[in-house]
Simulated assay, not measured.
Amino acid sequence: MRIGRVLLSATSLTTMFGAFLADWNETHVHNPNWPPHAKFHNGQTMSMGLALGACALGSLWGGRPSRGRLDAATAFASLYWITQLSAALYPGTALVDPPSTRKGRQPVIAGATLALNALGYALERRRIR
């Protein structure tokens, strides 16, 4: 069983479709309080996740397994989540919009996804040696 590839594939699919599932609603895409430019960047983020996940899957499954393909797949599968964590460092950002009192789960999801990517990478790297 190629559990490393399965883990990286699962996180890649989450990267591809997670933002659409989380954001295609009244809090983001259909939020009347968001200015058009904020919606533009939300769309950009969703499209970036879709593209990075697709690149990860292509690198992972698109040819003969190699260290280079694994490195590329893991980088593609991780970049979206790394940039999501870094977004909180910019001035004026918040994990949720007021008046919501919910706590933002993005750091937990990003951290768990990156941990799964690291585990998948380690398992697959050992397998293809």
Rank of each mutant, 00 (worst) to 15 (best):
H41S: 08
W24Y: 14
S9Y: 01
R67Q: 11
T113C: 07
D23T: 09
I82M: 04
T45V: 07
V96P: 12
Y80F: 00
R64V: 06
L57D: 10
L60S: 04
A19R: 08
N31P: 11
A115H: 00
R5D: 05
R105S: 10
S86V: 02
Q106H: 11
F40S: 12
F20T: 01
A56G: 14
P98N: 07
P107D: 01
A112R: 10
T45R: 15
A19I: 03
T14F: 00
L89K: 09
A72I: 00
C55P: 06
T27V: 12
P32V: 12
A77D: 15
L95I: 00
P91Q: 04
A77W: 03
H28F: 13
A115C: 01
L52Q: 02
L114G: 00
L79I: 04
A22N: 15
L13W: 07
A22H: 07
Q106M: 05
W34T: 05
G49R: 05
A75T: 13
N117P: 11
D71Q: 15
W24I: 15
L79K: 13
H41W: 12
T14R: 03
A22T: 13
W24L: 14
G18I: 10
A77K: 01
G111L: 08
F20M: 10
I109T: 03
A73Y: 06
L114T: 07
M46Y: 11
A77Y: 04
V6G: 10
G4P: 00
T11S: 00
L85A: 01
V29N: 04
T83C: 13
G62Q: 07
P36Y: 15
A77V: 09
G62I: 05
Q44I: 07
G111A: 08
N42D: 10
L8V: 05
T45W: 14
M16E: 11
A38H: 15
P32N: 08
S59H: 02
P91R: 11
Q106A: 07
C55A: 10
F17G: 06
T83Y: 03
S100L: 11
P35T: 09
A22F: 07
S12F: 11
L7H: 09
I82D: 03
P107L: 00
A10E: 12
G18H: 14
R67G: 10
K39P: 00
G4M: 00
H30N: 13
G49H: 03
T83G: 02
